[in-house]
Amino acid sequence: MPRKKMGEILIENKVISEQDLNKALLRQKGTKQPIGQILEDMDVILEEDIAQALSTQFGFTYVKKFAQYKFPLDVLNKVDADFALSHMIFPLKIDNKTLYLAMSNPLDMALQNDLSFKLGMRISPCVATSAEIKAAIKKHYLKEIKEQAGEQAVNILLVDNQDIVLNAAEAALKKEGYLVYKAKNGAEGLSIASQLLPDLVITEIAMPRMDGVQLYKSMRANQDLGRIPVIALAARTGAEDEARLLDMGFDDFIAKPINPIRLLARTRKALRLVTK
């Protein structure tokens, strides 16, 4: 028996009309976007509707409200928090060398194969909404990992589109005992910051998708992120540009290439300002 298409399932469940589906199919032509994503962009369905349809279409277990349960550290430690946030996954349980994984995209076979090879375990995907996964990470995952490092551990989010900069800064900060998370552009950084609520953000100014200034303004406009200190990073920047960034409200400025001693000094300074 052929597998039903998502559009058919959504119509059967009375989530959308045939008219909605036809409009979405027209928009889909010439693109590689999934029909569910197009319907969500049209504001005619919710992410939960997509998750339920995927569960029906492919036989995935649909999981929700799992943030309320307790998860042992040996399960959480199978996937680090940064990776979980970046890929919207959450480890649920281990049973007979199988890791049951909540995923916002359970059809991502490349990710499952990569984890299976890395962990030496079978991956059993379950479908969940991004909101449910974020809630679980926020309540359990980051909390448990932070407790392992000590109650005084400090979370720092690095945002830069250059791996060499991210890795160098991460090495210097981790050596001092900070917990470091990384993002490769402002949009990814904003998403991680919203869940992590870091103690400090250090961001490059010139980046694709969302630059450092846009990230800073988005954080300041957000009630939860508005008080987090933000240090600007930039290469080939003159005194006038530095002054402009500081006048804009950035808590400090570090010129590239990054000097580890200067990075740590500015980091400590920014964190002291928050704790006063």
Rank of each mutant, 00 (worst) to 15 (best):
Gln195Val: 15
Leu107Glu: 11
Val274Ala: 08
Ile145Val: 15
Phe66His: 01
Pro106Ala: 00
Pro208Ala: 00
Asn96Trp: 05
Tyr69Ala: 03
Pro125Cys: 02
Gln162Ile: 10
Ser191Trp: 13
Lys174Phe: 11
Leu54Ala: 00
Phe83Pro: 00
Gly7His: 06
Asn77Ile: 09
Thr31Ile: 06
Ile89Met: 09
Ser218His: 13
Asn96Ser: 12
Leu246Phe: 10
Arg272Thr: 10
Ile9Arg: 09
Ala187Ser: 11
Leu46Thr: 14
Gly36Cys: 04
Leu111His: 05
Gly189Met: 01
Leu215Glu: 02
Ile202Thr: 05
Glu242Tyr: 07
His140Arg: 09
Tyr141Pro: 02
Arg268Trp: 08
Arg266Val: 15
Gly36Arg: 06
Gln52His: 10
Leu10Met: 12
Pro2Gly: 01
Ala221Glu: 13
Leu225Asn: 06
Glu242Pro: 01
Glu170Leu: 05
Leu179Ser: 09
Gly189Ala: 06
Gln19Ala: 11
Leu25Gln: 14
Ile38His: 04
Met121Trp: 14
Tyr69Trp: 04
Val127Ser: 03
Tyr100His: 13
Tyr216Ile: 07
Ala169Arg: 03
Ala135Leu: 03
Lys138Trp: 01
Gly150Tyr: 14
Met219Phe: 08
Gly212Val: 09
Glu8Gln: 15
Leu245Ile: 07
Asp41Ile: 06
Lys64Trp: 01
Phe66Val: 02
Met219Arg: 06
Gln28Pro: 13
Gln37Pro: 00
Ile94Val: 15
Leu115Lys: 09
Gln57Trp: 07
Leu119Glu: 11
Glu170Asn: 13
Gln37Asn: 03
Leu46His: 08
Arg268Glu: 13
Leu10Gln: 04
Arg227Asp: 13
Gln214Thr: 10
Val201Leu: 11
Ala136Gly: 06
His140Lys: 04
Asp49Thr: 06
Gln152Phe: 12
Ser55Leu: 02
Pro125Ala: 00
Phe58Met: 02
Glu8Asn: 14
Ala169Ser: 11
Ala183Ile: 12
Ser104Leu: 00
Ala183Trp: 12
Pro72His: 10
Leu107Met: 11
Glu151Gln: 10
Asn185Ile: 07
Lys175Ile: 12
Glu204Arg: 04
Leu119Cys: 12
Ser191Val: 06
Leu271Gln: 09
Met207Gln: 01
Arg272His: 14
Val159Asn: 04
Gln214His: 02
His87Phe: 15
Ala135Asp: 11
Gly177Ser: 12
Ile192Pro: 03
Leu101Phe: 07
Leu99Phe: 14
Ile261Val: 15
Gly189Tyr: 06
Ile89Trp: 08
Ser116Pro: 10
Val159Thr: 05
Phe58Val: 09
Glu151Ile: 12
Leu200His: 13
Ala239Met: 09
Arg227Ser: 13
Ile50Gln: 03
Lys269Glu: 14
Ala67Gln: 09
Val79Ile: 15
Val180Tyr: 04
Pro106Leu: 02
Gly212Ala: 03
Asn259Ala: 01
Phe58His: 14
Leu111Gly: 06
Thr237Phe: 12
Leu73Ile: 13
Glu242His: 04
Pro2Glu: 05
Ser55Tyr: 05
Lys4Val: 08
Gly59His: 08
Gly36His: 07
Gly120Asn: 11
Glu8Cys: 02
Pro257Arg: 01
His140Gly: 00
Leu142Ile: 15
Glu188Arg: 04
Thr61Ala: 07
Leu26Thr: 08
Thr275Phe: 12
Lys93Cys: 07
Ile205Arg: 01
Ser86Tyr: 05
Arg227His: 15
Asn161Ile: 05
Ile9Leu: 10
Leu119Val: 12
Tyr69Asp: 03
Glu242Asn: 00
Leu46Glu: 08
Leu73Tyr: 15
Gln33His: 06
